[in-house]
Design a protein around this nucleic acid. Structure first.
Length: 690
DNA sequence: GTAGGGTTAG
């Protein structure tokens, strides 16, 4: 029933064109005129075809070969044609593959299961799964009995289009009607689909069902679920399954399994365990690949631990694994995150010497770095370089550049780029609108922002009609707009929009709640924020550490440090754990109150609790000491910062210079300080230490 | 001559 529905859904598709007589259509007519020019050498051509086939390396070769083959008589075998389609498909020229298939049909080449499997795969990868199902009809009409390869490809197509429910129905139908015996690949594909929608429980149930049905799962089946569990931060369950696979089922893990687990550990910040897994791999004789190392490099970079990342790169090179673009892109991003733009640029430039050509991702990463550190001229230069290098701007590079322009107040230029996007065929996405709204709001162009916000409704209405995939206001755009209104002090309007969300079916999330609390706090309505907080009681919304961080910060900033302290105690009582931000906010509060001893104790305690103080922690504590004219620990803190590869910001640096000028600090510290100041800061026009 | 699992940018 379900399959029938799917097949009949696709009334307009390529396969209906082939009903009836295949040789008597326009394709064959356009092809045969060339026939005579080749026919005299057809016996040579066969040999030539054979040898040339090995060398099909690009689209043109393949198309030329097809022309030759189709003009050879007798026609080469279906195997030769299918191999050609296969090589095109491997090069991801899916639509060309389909084109050639049509021509083959027109020529009367007797296609078989192998051919159909490839064509179905092509349709699916073009997100045209309905046409793939039409191809199934084509099989039936031509008496090609679909096999487990074909059915698996179709199942994969549905999953690729996120049509998981249909995939499940299709899968069950295949079994119930005994249309084919599912094998380990088909089960694994179905499991992948279930995992894709976060249905790990059912995926695991299907895994045990396989055994019952006499189909042994393999490393792919297990790794699919292990990866999904890792992505859902259920790493302990992932390890449980991993152990079941290795020790109970005797299935060896491979490099992909380990990569999934290492990635999972990194995403949970369990740094100490990730390298242990790397060691374990080596111990059991599995060679880590570029991806293994890239995962580690990326994870370290995201945490600002560049030294560790560089270390990993050294190790991988020693092991004979060559870092690729992905590896270096992560490293570039790492330096960008630390604001060390000259280092980021050096890495970017060095890629060429390593035989790697920066791709659009490399550019957008560096571009983002320049934008975030407000070096807009460098950013603009890089943005223009992208097209000069023959690369194409995508939504990401536009979004990044637009955001950068807004950040330095160049709203007109941002707007111009936004208009340019359309002309260049880059359709703005949800994020583009978010960036523009935020940009307008931050630049106090609130009327513009509001009118754009309402305009989006119309624009998106149209968009929806055309694509059915379109845009609509989601929690993100609401959140952005609410935040914007708060930023210009329009708390009432923010509130109104918040109420409107519910009516439009957009459920406020923890972020919305955080924005509202923060908005109220910033607008000196901390009492309101606290009463909203108390009103929520033990609601899930109050169970986020972010909420506490906002309130603690706000309370201490407006002199209600006792409330801040109370909240800090309260969160542990509720079974929540402070994060690094909580510690930073508390330390900052203690310093503000002049309680430097307590600040220092908390600073030491956080490290004991497993929280490595970050750049912010050091800067906050230093500022506390300096503002209170207590300089005893300053040198030690600076030494530690140096050891950890941290850097000073403009505010802290000028406080330090003030103390040196006033004689409270020795000017021998200048050496150490200069090591801690990013070059960018030294050259920055915004920084003028008086 | 056919199919399945993992990494990267806003």
């Amino acid at each position: 029933m379900a399959m029938k529905t799917i097949v009949t859904l696709s009334a307009h598709n390529i396969f209906f064109k082939f009903r009836g007589n295949f040789t008597n259509n326009s394709f064959s007519k356009t092809h045969f005129p060339n026939f005579h020019s080749y026919s005299s050498s057809s016996s040579n051509d066969n040999g030539h075809t054979q040898s040339k086939f090995q060398k099909v390396a690009n689209l043109n070769d393949a198309l030329n070969l097809f022309d030759q083959m189709s003009q050879t008589r007798p026609l080469p075998s279906i195997v030769k044609f299918t191999q050609l389609l296969q090589s095109l498909t491997k090069m991801k020229h899916f639509s060309h593959s389909i084109d050639l298939f049509k021509k083959m049909c027109a020529l009367g080449v007797p296609v078989d299961n192998y051919t159909m499997n490839i064509i179905i795969k092509c349709c699916c990868h073009l997100y045209r799964t309905n046409e793939a199902f039409a191809a199934l009809g084509f099989c039936f009409r031509r008496c090609i009995v679909p096999d487990v390869f074909i059915y698996s490809a179709l199942l994969d197509g549905l999953i690729l289009e996120d049509r998981i429910l249909e995939a499940e129905i299709f899968f069950k139908k295949l079994i119930k009607q005994k249309l084919c015996e599912p094998n380990v690949v088909m089960y694994s594909t179905m499991i992948k689909g279930l995992c894709k929608v976060g249905n790990n429980v059912i995926a695991i149930q299907l895994l045990s069902l396989m055994d019952v049905n006499g189909c042994k799962p393999n490393v792919v089946t297990y790794s699919t679920i292990i990866d999904s569990l890792c992505k859902d931060k259920m790493i302990d369950d992932a390890f449980k399954l991993f152990k079941e696979m290795v020790f109970q089922k005797g299935i060896s893990a491979d490099v992909i399994t380990y990569n999934c687990l290492i990635d999972g550990l990194c995403n949970l910040g369990r740094w100490d365990e990730a390298p242990k897994m790397l060691q374990e791999m080596l111990d059991v004789g599995i060679s880590p690949d570029v991806k293994t190392f890239s995962i580690l490099v990326d994870a370290f970079c995201k945490e600002g631990m560049i030294e560790e990342a560089e270390n990993v790169i050294d190790i991988m090179i020693k092991k004979g694994v060559v870092p690729d673009i992905v590896t270096y892109n992560s490293l570039i991003d790492g330096y960008c995150l630390r604001g060390e733009m000259s280092k980021a640029k050096t890495i970017f430039d060095s890629m060429v010497f390593r035989g790697l050509v920066p791709n659009v991702v490399s550019y957008s990463t560096l571009l983002n770095g320049y934008c975030k550190s407000l070096k807009i001229d460098e950013a603009m230069g890089l943005f223009n370089e992208i097209t000069r290098k023959g690369l194409k701007h995508d939504v990401v590079t536009y979004n990044t550049m637009i955001q950068g322009l807004f950040q330095v107040g160049r709203c007109g230029d941002a707007r111009k780029l936004f208009d340019e996007m359309h002309g260049k065929g880059q359709i703005p996405d949800q994020l583009t609108y978010g960036i523009i709204l935020e940009g307008l709001c931050n630049n106090r162009q609130i009327e513009e922002a509001l009118s754009l916000f309402h305009l989006m409704d119309e624009a998106m209405g149209l968009f929806n009609e055309i694509t059915r995939k379109g845009l609509k206001h989601d929690v993100v755009t609401y959140n952005t707009m609410i935040q914007g209104l708060f930023q210009v002090g329009r708390c009432g309007d923010a509130r109104k929009l918040f109420d409107e969300m519910h009516g439009k079916g957009q459920i406020p999330d923890q972020l919305t709640y955080g924005i509202i609390l923060e908005g109220l706090c910033n607008n000196r309505q901390i009492e309101e924020a606290l009463s909203l907080f108390h009103l929520m009681g033990d609601s899930k919304l109050n169970m986020g550490i972010v909420v506490y961080n906002i309130l603690i910060d706000a309370a201490s900033k407006c002199g209600k440090f006792d409330i801040a302290k109370g909240l800090f105690r309260d969160l542990t009582n509720k079974g929540m754990h402070p994060n690094i931000r909580t510690y930073n906010v508390m330390i900052s509060g203690l310093c503000r109150e002049g309680l430097l001893g307590d600040a220092k104790r908390l600073f030491l305690k956080m490290e004991e609790s497993g929280f490595r103080p970050d750049n912010v922690t050091y800067r906050v504590l230093l500022q506390g000491y300096l503002k209170n004219n207590q300089c005893d620990d300053v040198e030690m803190l600076l030494q530690e910062m140096d050891g950890r590869g941290y850097s000073l910001d403009a505010t802290t640096l000028s406080l330090l210079l003030d103390q040196i000028a006033g004689g409270s600090l020795n000017n021998t510290l200048l050496d150490l300080m200069s090591k801690l100041v990013p070059k960018e800061l030294m050259n920055s026009p915004n920084f003028s230490p008086n």
